[in-house]
Design a protein around this nucleic acid. Sequence first.
RNA 1: CGGGGCGUAGCUCAGCUUGGUAGAGCGCCUGGUUUGGGACCAGGAGGCCGCAGGUUCGAAUCCUGUCGCCCCGACCA
Length: 542
Amino acid sequence: MSDQAAEPQKKQKQQNQQNQQKGQQQKGGGKQDERRITPRAEDYSRWYLDVVREAQLADHSAVRGCMVIRPNGYAIWEKMQRELDARFKATGHVNAYFPLFIPVSFLSKEAQHVEGFAKECAVVTHHRLRAKSDGSGVEVDPESKLEEPLIVRPTSETIIWSAYKEWIQSYRDLPILINQWANVVRWEMRTRLFLRTAEFLWQEGHTAHETEKEALEETHLMLEVYRDFAENVMAVPVIRGAKTPGERFAGALESLSIEAMMQDGRALQAGTSHYLGQNFARAFDVTFQNREGKRELVYATSWGVSTRLIGALIMTHSDDTGLIIPPKLATTHVVIVPIYKTDEEKARVYTEADAVEAELKAQGLGVVIDKREGLAPGAKYYDWESKGVPLRIEIGPKDLENGSLCVARRFVIEIPGEDEKAQRSRKKAFLPRAEALAKIKTILDEMQKDLFQRALNFRAKKTRVINTLEEYEKFFKEEGGGFAWVHWAGTPEEEEVIAKKYQTSIRNAPLDGQFPEGGEGAGPCLFTGRPSARRVVMAESY
RNA sequence: CGGGGCGUAGCUCAGCUUGGUAGAGCGCCUGGUUUGGGACCAGGAGGCCGCAGGUUCGAAUCCUGUCGCCCCGACCA
């Protein structure tokens, strides 16, 4: 046990030593020594951290479990916000803001809710510091103890429903369709940048409705908004479905999710939409007079996506060179790298680069000219590739002479067996200037589609309809795993047993229209043999 | 919370076993030569060796305590 635990450390140390030696032996050496990103095949989770670091998306902060989102990472989040917010508004929602702090007593008003979140709450107990008697700094002033402790919101259902109670009297006050952009804190034991951090940014929608039917429709509508965003903006294919009772949001009657497949075959829950029934209305005594004049409890939904989406984005598209940003989420679409030898060439190349920049900006594209001195063009290529910029335009003396532009795509769809050089030449094209400028947007659109198609192909390759336990075990233990479509009719207890045994879990029970060939219809549960009406998706997960 | 590991330059780490002038690579700064896939030369800046005690003529190194971080596990809307 202890040896196993020590193993990765040892490995890392050895490797660092080797790298160091190599570096010393062959100074200024080849690509191998310049490698800053661990290949996915070697260590997927280190690859992930390397990509985040090289693209300067985020850093670990001085606070345990919390990250600093750097400008490159925040720019992606801002784009996501803009796209999502427009979709929320288009479906009739408005934004508002509720407090960061929630009285402890609020949380406990909904029994399941408090049970789900109690173990990961940050608690505020005092409101003042005082100087230490030995002058060595400050300490909590015991005199300043709060009468009732406050928790830092892990989610806002309780504080929001305490407000809704004040707002709702009649069916005429419904529906309430509110979204909040906020940060929340969940004191997670183990964290990973973007995927699970103690504090994260998200949006949370909280709606109140007259009827169950209307609330359920809202739940499905927002799930569809998330699907549309994931697939058409992030280029991440997702499976929509219902969580099992054991995996439901604390306090929900139904939890819907979108699940995406990462490049290691594991599933990532990318968004959730919950039907909360009358649970929170009951907890906060929120009733309204309905059309028949009778008092009734309000029906609720909540739904959210978080900065975790950035993790999904990375693990769906990026490669061993670094980040790949889908064009629709990029703030910089094109980087221009000038190439020159003499000062005279430099002046001419810069003039052309400025002109190209202006023309592309006029098309509404984000453009940067990399005018850094003393960096070889190749170094700049690697730099921008690791940051995920979709397109690069190289402008050199050759282009000035020929009236051409060299347009290089960040990626092309792989052809099996193709070596790196061949792939590179497929990425680059010398095009007549006018044609290049006219085609940039088309190329970006193509790339957006290619990313989605590539992810879809990958998921298809790692998806299996499975009918026997032997096959199931083989799929996950020997064949690298992925999404297994199986029949399930077990209890929550049985679900836990299976999860422990195979390290897999039920991601969701997919909604209609998504079943793979041969995966439709009823059958016997894979684990218990009991009859099951439809298949669920099982996978290892993040 | 249990088990393991690590704190030395901005980053990755060596030095510690056997105490004696603080090191390497990358990065950074200056100047020059370079520039179509990770340039080179020369010069330079940068350290309370996590923190607090102790042993010693002398501590990055030995001892004690403490704080922090990472990994494995448990936990995880």
